[in-house]
Each structure stands twice: as C-alpha cells, then as structure tokens.
Computed example of a mutant assay.
Amino acid sequence: MGKAVEGVPVQGVPYADRMRPCAAALVARLTARNRLPLDYSVASLRVVDFLVDGLRKGLADPERLSGTLFGLGAYVGEVLVRRAGAVWVDFDADQRAYFGQSVGVRMPDGRVWNPLGKVRNRFDVGGSEESLQTFWLTLHGRARTSAA
C-alpha cells in the first residue's frame, strides 16, 4: 500500500487509536441521508452484511470502494470493542503479514481478529459463510458480560 486512501492507513503505520473515529465518521456519513440502524449493536451487523452485499452487487471497482469497505470494517471492529470487550491493536509485523492489515482487535482472552479483512472477504467472496452477523455468533474470546 502506498499513501492513505480515504482514511485507509498506510501499511505498518499505527492506527489503532484512529479506528473509533473512523467508524463514527462512516456512521455519520451513511446515516446522514438514510435511516440505517447503525447503532453499534450486534443486530446492526446484519445491516453491514446488506450494505456490503449491495456494494458487491453494484459491481463497483473495489479500489474505489476501499475507503468505504475500510470504514465498514472499522464499524464491525467497534461493535466488537463495545459489545465483546475487545480493544483495538496495531498488528505486529507477523500479524500484518498474516492478516494483510495494520490494525485489528484483541479479545479479552488474548485472541486477535481482523474485522477489516472480514468485511473485505464479505465483499470479495460473498455468501453466508462470510456473514458478519455469523462472525459475531461464532466469535471466540468474547467477554461473558457482553450485551447483545
């Protein structure tokens, strides 16, 4: 990756502290003209599935959508932060190589997850196996006191 595109970080640059504002900016942009229920609830992950599917069906150039897909990934990660007890973390070199992203979330049990990549997989592959709502349901390492 070269320079940042619409808030997408340059590979290797710390961005964990910028993810919450990135998610908030996406929510503000998407809800300004639409009444989308993007309220950081677990149920809102189904809305993200529908949004990604709509982008996918629109056959738009993935590079043109990189900022939007990144923002949706930030939103999914922020749901994990708020509902599962995760924290945003900057990936180390090995994690960046494995996940293909600079940032992700660490769950209370220490596992790391890649919500940015999960959104990109939903866009690239589609299908129920890449559902963000299913991702939540099968997610290991959540805090037991999480609110749905």
Rank of each mutant, 00 (worst) to 15 (best):
N114M: 04
L30C: 04
V125E: 07
W113Y: 10
V119S: 06
V5P: 03
A93W: 05
H140A: 15
L69I: 10
R122Y: 06
K57W: 00
S131P: 10
G54D: 10
G73F: 04
L36H: 03
D90E: 05
A93Q: 14
V103K: 01
K57V: 04
S102I: 01
G110C: 01
F50K: 10
A97P: 05
V76C: 14
L116P: 03
P115E: 10
M107C: 08
L59F: 08
A86Q: 02
P62C: 11
R46E: 14
R83E: 00
V5E: 12
R35M: 05
D39Y: 05
L132N: 14
A24H: 09
R122T: 06
A32P: 02
L26K: 06
P62G: 05
A23M: 01
V105N: 06
A24S: 06
A32D: 13
Q95I: 02
A16E: 11
V87Q: 13
A147K: 01
P14G: 05
H140V: 09
P37I: 01
V76A: 15
A74Y: 02
D94I: 01
F91Y: 15
G104E: 04
V89R: 07
R64I: 03
L137K: 12
S102N: 03
V42T: 03
A86N: 00
G77W: 02
A24L: 12
D53A: 11
D49Y: 13
G67K: 08
V48A: 07
A16P: 06
E129M: 14
F50M: 15
A97T: 09
S128P: 03
Q95L: 10
G117Q: 00
V52M: 00
G77S: 01
